[in-house]
Computed example of a mutant assay.
Amino acid sequence: MSRVRTRPTRDDTRDKLFEAAARVFEEDGIGGASIEAIAAAAGFTRGAFYSNFNSKDELIIAMLEDHVEQSIRRNMDILAQHDNLDDFIAALRTMDRSRQDPLGRSPLLHMEMILYVARAEKRRPELAKRLRARRKLIADIVEATLKSNGKNNALNPPWMASVVLALEDGFRLHRLIDPETTPADSFLRAITDLRRRTGLAAG
């Protein structure tokens, strides 16, 4: 009989560190969170942390990268099922955040982490890389929607993607500052309004 593996894989360890880091960041703040606290929250030693990441900043970059990769896969899966923009937005509204990665479950923590990394100028190119990946995803969704509806629209998908992402990040920041007047669905409501105004209507 084959032996049952009891040691976690590298991906398992990273996922547990991501989950633990999110909890510690929310409790202690990103700046105040220590590597020791993150490792302990994950049930690992400090050495286990350093076998995966060289620093807290590297962990944060990895979390942001993982979030973008998962977001792209998730949105492309939804697009494959709903090439109609109204249906796509409706699917986003009903998406179960509890099954997402830590930053998907907590958009505010995602924004805080972006701002934290952006404070270091040398790290900004890494953020730019992920921003471009997000922008391309949205541009692909806009272009696919236009084609599926048989529209030869004059809209510029890359520019529309920039507008959409600016709205998304803006509403995240507004909700961080003033959650009482910024409902959780503000971004999707804005996208629905934008869709109606630009003629990106269902076929």
Score class of each variant (00 low, 15 high):
1 M>L: 10
2 S>D: 11
3 R>W: 10
4 V>R: 11
10 R>N: 10
12 D>W: 03
13 T>L: 06
14 R>I: 14
14 R>C: 09
20 A>I: 06
20 A>D: 01
21 A>Q: 01
24 V>E: 03
26 E>K: 14
28 D>Q: 13
28 D>M: 08
29 G>H: 05
30 I>A: 04
31 G>N: 14
31 G>K: 09
32 G>H: 06
32 G>C: 07
33 A>I: 01
34 S>V: 09
34 S>I: 07
36 E>I: 09
46 R>V: 11
47 G>I: 06
50 Y>L: 04
52 N>W: 00
54 N>P: 00
55 S>I: 14
58 E>I: 06
59 L>H: 05
60 I>V: 15
60 I>F: 05
65 E>N: 14
65 E>Y: 06
66 D>C: 10
69 E>G: 15
69 E>P: 02
71 S>T: 14
83 D>W: 02
84 N>M: 00
85 L>G: 02
90 A>C: 03
94 T>I: 08
99 R>E: 12
101 D>C: 10
102 P>G: 14
103 L>F: 12
109 L>M: 11
111 M>N: 05
114 I>E: 02
115 L>Y: 01
115 L>Q: 08
116 Y>F: 13
119 R>N: 04
120 A>T: 13
121 E>D: 13
122 K>L: 10
122 K>A: 14
128 A>H: 07
128 A>E: 12
132 R>G: 00
133 A>F: 00
134 R>K: 13
134 R>E: 11
139 A>F: 04
139 A>L: 06
140 D>G: 09
141 I>S: 02
144 A>H: 01
144 A>V: 04
145 T>N: 08
146 L>S: 07
147 K>S: 13
150 G>I: 07
155 L>N: 10
158 P>H: 07
160 M>A: 11
164 V>W: 03
167 L>S: 08
168 E>P: 00
170 G>T: 08
172 R>I: 09
173 L>Q: 08
173 L>V: 15
174 H>T: 09
174 H>A: 15
177 I>H: 04
179 P>H: 06
182 T>E: 06
182 T>Y: 04
182 T>V: 13
183 P>D: 11
184 A>H: 09
184 A>V: 12
185 D>Y: 08
185 D>N: 15
185 D>V: 09
186 S>W: 03
186 S>L: 09
187 F>A: 04
188 L>G: 08
188 L>Y: 07
193 D>Q: 12
194 L>S: 03
194 L>G: 08
194 L>A: 07
199 G>N: 07
